[in-house]
Amino acid sequence: MPQTSRLKPVILVVSRELLMTALLLLGISLVVFSIVYLAPGDPFEALLGAQAGAADRQAALQAMELPSTWYGQYLSWLGQLLQGDFGASLRSGAPVAQELIVTGGNTLYLIFGAMLVSLLFAVPIAVYSVNRQDAFSTWLVTMTAYLASALPLFWLGYVLIYIFTHQLGIFPVATGLHTDQPLGLSHLLLPVILLGIGNGAVGEILRHLRLELARVLGEEYVRTARAKGAPVWRHALAEGLILPVTEMVAAKLPHILSGAIIVEQVFNWPGVGRLTWQAALDRDYPVILAVAVVAAAMVRGGSLLHRCVYIWINPRASREH
């Protein structure tokens, strides 16, 4: 097949993925907006007092030049969102975007570190056990996966702190939000290991990798490669390992983000998780709203990346549908 006609469907399918992602981002903003819109009570209740009727509210809306219909409010909120304006925190009055930037870096370290730890744990076990499909190793993998999911993350965190910080004195624990004390690798290591191993995601990653690897190694093209003496790994790597890894990274990102809230709580880690927790306590919904939108957008980004890797590895996909 000539090069030009091969490239065209790829562009088509990638642009379709982009369109889908854009539609989903729009849906995400709508879901988040409707949760806050449907919530009982609004700032005007506090502003005007409980006796204020619908007419007073309408007058206040007009005086402040705010749109009175729900779609008007949604569109103006969306417009601000697209300009990077997430509104102001009800608690501190500071712009939410600024708070997210201050804490976001710490959480990104945590998430990417945890993902790395999960993969460093799961990939070798999957590769090692894939050719050993006997009952015992299957049982061992299954049990490891379920134990990792069932163990309460927060309890495991305290046990790790007790052993490594209090008894062995190796890893210091970060304290408090917005500390001036710089966070080093020694602060990061324990939370990253906890989130990477203790989170339920690692078990599912392990099982999925093992299953996919076994499936690809049984495919006919791998068998042909084996028969003609070609290195099996070079043929099976892309579809058997890289693809499932990106798929799992994309699929388990929300899981890890949820887990980060708990891990940051255990370790007093000054990140977005602590920020979200504090905001939920104070019912500071502009902050959580922003966190939800950014987190969901990250998940969509990860998913888009996975789809691109999929199309790149498997060009046939561009002729599907």
């Binding site: 995400i28 879901v31 949820s258």
Partner: peptide, 19 residues
């Protein structure tokens, strides 16, 4: 796909803060 985009705990905390 829309529902799978949200980290569950973050969505739960949003609902807790709003409701």
């Amino acid at each position: 796909n829309l529902l799978d985009s949200f980290p569950r705990l973050i969505l739960v905390l949003l609902v807790i803060a709003a409701f």
